[in-house]
C-alpha cells in the first residue's frame, strides 16, 4: 500500500483509534516505509517532552482575582470611589443590577450566547458581538483591578497595578485609584509599580500634576529618584521649579539631590 493511502489511516492509528485489519495494514506499511515509520516514532517521542509546571504564583493570582471579583460583586469596597461624575464602570454595573438593567443584561447575554454558539458552530463571527465582548471584558478587568488596588495585602495591590497595565485606556476611576496608590500606598513596591503604570498615561489630566505633587511628599529616596527619572523622561519643563524646591530641602539624601541637579540640567 502507498503512503498516500496510509495517510488517511495514520492519524487514527497514532491516536490508537484503529483495530483489526485496518490496524494491520498500517503496521505492515510501517515495517516497509521509513518515512511513515519516522512519523509514528516522532509522535511517540512527542509524549516524552514532559509537561511544564505552572508556578504557585498562578494559584495565588487566581485566588486574589476571585476574591476581588466577589468583593466587587458585593459592592462593598469599590463603591467608596463614586465621586466621579459620568458613566463609571461601577454605575454601569449598578444599573445592570436594576430591573431595567437586568432585562438589557439578559439581552446582552443572549447575544453573547449566540456569539459563542456561532464560534463553536464554526460560523463566521459577528464583529459587533465581538466588540461588545471586548468592551465588557475590558471593564471587567478594570473592575477587578480597582477592587484589588484596595485590598489589605500589598501583593494583591501589586497585582491590581499589574492588571491596569494591560489596558491601553483606563477608566477615570481606575486612573484616580492608581494616582491615590502612588501617593498614599504603604508599600514602596506598590507605589513604584503605580508610577510605572501611570507613566504610560501622561496624556491624561492630573497624571503629571500628581507625579509632581508626589515628588514633594515622598520621603523614600528610592521613590524620589524614580519620580525624578519619570519627570525627565516626560521632558516636563514645568517640573523644574518643583525640582528646585526639592533640592533645597535640608535633609535630602545626597544621591537624590545629585539626581535632582542632573534632572534640572536636562530639563533646562
Amino acid at each position: 500500500m502507498k503512503c498516500e493511502e496510509i495517510a488517511e489511516l495514520l492519524p487514527d492509528y497514532l491516536q490508537q483509534g484503529l483495530q483489526g485489519e485496518r490496524k494491520n495494514i498500517v503496521e505492515r506499511h510501517l515495517e516497509s516505509c521509513v518515512e511513515c515509520r519516522e512519523v509514528a516514532g516522532l509522535w511517540k517521542q512527542l509524549a516524552l517532552i514532559p509537561d511544564e509546571q505552572p508556578s504557585p504564583a498562578g494559584r495565588a493570582r487566581f485566588d486574589a482575582m476571585l476574591q476581588a471579583y466577589q468583593a466587587g460583586q458585593g459592592s462593598g469596597v469599590v463603591t467608596r470611589r463614586t465621586t466621579d461624575k459620568g458613566t463609571s464602570i461601577w454605575s454601569v454595573f449598578q444599573w445592570l443590577r436594576s430591573p431595567v438593567g437586568a432585562v438589557a443584561w439578559s439581552i446582552a447575554l443572549v447575544a453573547l450566547g449566540t456569539y459563542l454558539g456561532l464560534q463553536l458552530g464554526g460560523a463566521k463571527s459577528n464583529s459587533q458581538d465581538l466588540a461588545a465582548m471586548h468592551t465588557e471584558l475590558t471593564s471587567m478587568r478594570q473592575m477587578v483591578a480597582l477592587s484589588m488596588l484596595q485590598q489589605q495585602s500589598a501583593s494583591q495591590r501589586l497585582e491590581g497595578v499589574t492588571w491596569t497595565r494591560r489596558e491601553e485606556h483606563l477608566d477615570p476611576q481606575v486612573l484616580s485609584a492608581l494616582m491615590h496608590t502612588l501617593r498614599y500606598d504603604q508599600s514602596v513596591d506598590v507605589r513604584l509599580a503605580a508610577l510605572d503604570a501611570l507613566s504610560r498615561h501622561a496624556g491624561q489630566p492630573q497624571v503629571k500634576k500628581t507625579v509632581l505633587d508626589a515628588l514633594q511628599e515622598q520621603q523614600s529616596p528610592l521613590m524620589q529618584v524614580a519620580l525624578i527619572d519619570q519627570l525627565v523622561e516626560w521632558r516636563d519643563a514645568e517640573a523644574a521649579p518643583g525640582l528646585e524646591k526639592l533640592r533645597k530641602l535640608p535633609n535630602l539624601n545626597p544621591t537624590v539631590r545629585q539626581r535632582a541637579d542632573w534632572a534640572i540640567s536636562k530639563l533646562n
Binding site: F62, M65, L109, L112, M140
Partner: peptide
C-alpha cells in the same frame, strides 16, 4: 513563554467567570 502563559491562564479564568452564562448544556 512562561510569563505570558501564566497571564493567559488568568485571562481564561476571568473570561470563564464573566461568560459562564454563555455556556450551553450539551456542549
Amino acid at each position: 513563554d512562561r510569563a505570558l502563559s501564566e497571564d493567559l491562564v488568568q485571562e481564561v479564568f476571568l473570561r470563564i467567570l464573566r461568560h459562564r452564562q454563555t455556556f450551553r448544556d450539551g456542549t
